[in-house]
Computed example of a mutant assay.
Amino acid sequence: MLQRKFDKIVKAHFPNAMDAKDTSIHYLGKMQIDHKINVSKVLMATSVCSDDINVPSTTFFNVLFGPFIMGGLGGLPFAGQTGMTAFAHHIPDEGSAFIFYGPHIGITLEGDLGKMYRPRQEQTGNSCGALMLALSRFQDGGYKPVLNDDDYQQMKLEESLLPYREQILEGDNSAKAITEATYEIIDQKIHDHLKSCKDEFHVEKVALLGGIIINTDYGLDDYFDARNFEVIDVKSL
């Protein structure tokens, strides 16, 4: 019953979103059937937020090797070119690579974006916490992040989002807008790192699935709003 209610609420904001488990089945099928990828020899990498709530979001984790973790706060691939190179070197012989990436956002039964009920907590909390913190800081017109060793990832996340600040604050829903902007940043960085590290890959195919993870209540399925699925011949980049 609650899952059906969430389905309506999620799709009011993200019409193309799919149950996360169904997402896994759908795209694993596409990899196998449409692209002839042997999923028993696929190493998965993720560039999603380090938030613990994202671990059970899809069943890719139960099928594929890995994950090799590239993402940090907000889902940005903080592992960088070194991480992409290491991932390339870990792929099984005659296997393939799969990168699952994107930010996440919570939603409540009341339709509030950027909030969710976490396991065994009676009050809502932020999701994504790092993005909602950035959003609250951006509302101060004089605020600018200052990179420092003690909070490097958060400051770098905010610095990356600064060019989007105006459109985030002027959007119909700023929590959704900052999540959308973060997706664009992650997507660009993943493609840039792939291109710069293409010679490190000794496989024919790298599959990418990017989008937005939508967190619902504890114990219920999350959703995924896919924005990009492609299978790349890295040598052609």
Results as ranks from 00 to 15, higher is better:
192 D>T: 07
156 K>Q: 14
156 K>G: 00
208 L>G: 11
198 K>C: 13
211 G>P: 08
189 K>G: 01
188 Q>P: 00
191 H>N: 14
175 A>L: 06
160 S>P: 06
173 N>F: 04
222 D>W: 01
177 A>G: 02
184 E>K: 14
221 D>K: 06
227 R>K: 15
163 P>I: 06
183 Y>T: 06
187 D>W: 00
226 A>W: 03
191 H>S: 12
215 N>L: 08
195 K>G: 07
201 F>M: 08
181 A>I: 02
192 D>N: 09
211 G>V: 03
161 L>A: 05
218 Y>I: 01
216 T>P: 04
193 H>W: 08
200 E>N: 08
224 F>R: 10
224 F>L: 10
224 F>N: 08
158 E>M: 15
169 L>I: 04
206 V>F: 08
174 S>M: 09
160 S>I: 00
211 G>N: 05
194 L>F: 02
186 I>S: 07
182 T>F: 11
196 S>L: 09
162 L>Q: 15
161 L>K: 10
213 I>Y: 11
185 I>Q: 05
220 L>D: 08
214 I>Y: 03
156 K>L: 13
191 H>I: 02
171 G>H: 13
223 Y>F: 12
183 Y>I: 00
190 I>Y: 08
211 G>I: 11
168 I>M: 01
222 D>C: 10
209 L>S: 10
199 D>L: 05
201 F>G: 04
222 D>T: 11
170 E>V: 04
164 Y>T: 02
198 K>S: 14
176 K>A: 09
157 L>F: 02
186 I>R: 02
221 D>G: 01
177 A>M: 15
221 D>P: 01
211 G>L: 07
176 K>E: 12
162 L>R: 00
158 E>P: 13
166 E>H: 00
183 Y>K: 03
176 K>T: 00
178 I>E: 13
168 I>D: 05
198 K>Y: 04
156 K>T: 10
212 I>F: 05
207 A>E: 03
192 D>K: 01
191 H>E: 15
169 L>M: 05
172 D>S: 07
186 I>L: 12
